[in-house]
């Protein structure tokens, strides 16, 4: 029981991070039908941005948090404006390859700005680990869970309660019809990039204290996030959340009850199975392209 609980804690911590990354993938796909393979790099920028603002400039944590998100989503906006929008024939394959190129570019930039070495950060709060039924739960895990739920819930409110959010949904459902009703389509795409990369930054920020931040940390995280988004159903907000947690927990259980060498294999086999049985993902219905 103690072991099971410990695996579960480990799983939900990683799962929450995968979920936030998956949400970023998912919402961008929803608005633009684009898979941004540079998304993992924005996660990395979030983590390294926090290193700079919090541990180098010594700003208070909330300010460093907000500044990092602003800077990274600003970078996302620039990325959309100069790399995506300027493409003359925006076929999906061309755009996907551009995002792959952007990820290599961002990694190179990060390497020259932050150097090649990994960097560590202290946890957000100094509390000692909690003991629940002899399993330990890190305070940082609670931060991760809290912030990721807050972020996803905030996004849900944005889509349900604000005019802009509804306009964005309209664009997702039918681009042309939305345009005809006077919704500025281009602005909505920019906004989607801004928010998606902002979510990436949040994921990077909350993960920074439990792991080590380096310029090449984003690729694997991006891949796992993509996996989670596919698992839950690409384009679905709750699906992304579910996919993230499912992936995290299964990885931890796989490590605990099978063999740690098979950890990644278990996750990817599961993905294959789900794609085979339900190609749209667990929560992804065929026609419902909305949150």
């Amino acid at each position: 029981m103690q072991e099971f609980l410990q695996y579960f804690f480990s799983g939900i911590t990683n799962g929450a991070i995968y979920a936030v990354i998956a949400v970023g993938f998912s919402m961008l796909y929803n608005s633009t039908e684009l898979i941004n393979f540079a998304h993992g790099e924005f996660v990395m920028l979030g983590a390294l941005g926090l290193v700079t603002f919090w541990s180098v400039f010594k700003l208070p944590l909330p300010i460093a948090f907000i500044l990092t998100v602003i800077c990274v989503s600003g970078a996302g906006l620039l990325f959309e404006r100069f790399a995506i929008r300027t493409v003359s024939k925006p076929q999906p394959i061309v755009l996907v390859i551009i995002t792959v190129g952007a990820s290599i570019f961002l990694r190179g930039i990060a390497m020259s700005v932050w150097g090649k070495d990994a960097k560590g950060l202290p946890p957000f709060s100094d509390h000692s680990p909690l003991e629940i039924a002899k399993a330990t739960l890190l305070p940082q895990s609670l931060w991760i869970l809290g912030i990721s739920f807050l972020a996803v819930f905030g996004l849900y409110l944005f889509y349900q309660k604000t005019l802009t959010g509804k306009a964005m949904q309209a664009c997702a459902i039918n681009r042309r019809a939305a345009w005809l009703t006077g919704i500025p389509y281009q602005k909505m795409i920019s906004l989607a990039f801004l928010m998606s990369t902002g979510m990436g930054a949040v994921a990077g920020i909350i993960i920074a204290p439990i792991t080590l931040c380096s310029y090449d940390m984003g690729t694997m995280l991006g891949l796992k996030g993509f996996c989670a988004a596919m698992l839950g159903g690409l384009g679905s907000l709750w699906g992304a959340l579910l996919g993230g947690f499912l992936l995290g927990i299964l990885e931890a259980m796989g490590t605990g009850f099978f063999y740690s060498g098979l950890k990644d294999a278990i996750a990817f086999i599961l993905l294959l199975l789900i794609l085979y049985i339900r190609p749209g993902g667990i929560l992804g219905a065929k026609d419902a392209k909305r949150f």
């Binding site: 072991e3 480990s10 792991t211 490590t255």
Partner: peptide, 20 residues
């Protein structure tokens, strides 16, 4: 005997298994 990936962010699951 357990293993971990070189980009993994959390190894508590492996350590829990070792502790057992």
């Amino acid at each position: 005997s357990e293993s971990f990936g070189d980009k993994d962010t959390d190894m508590t699951a492996q350590l829990t298994k070792l502790r057992k």
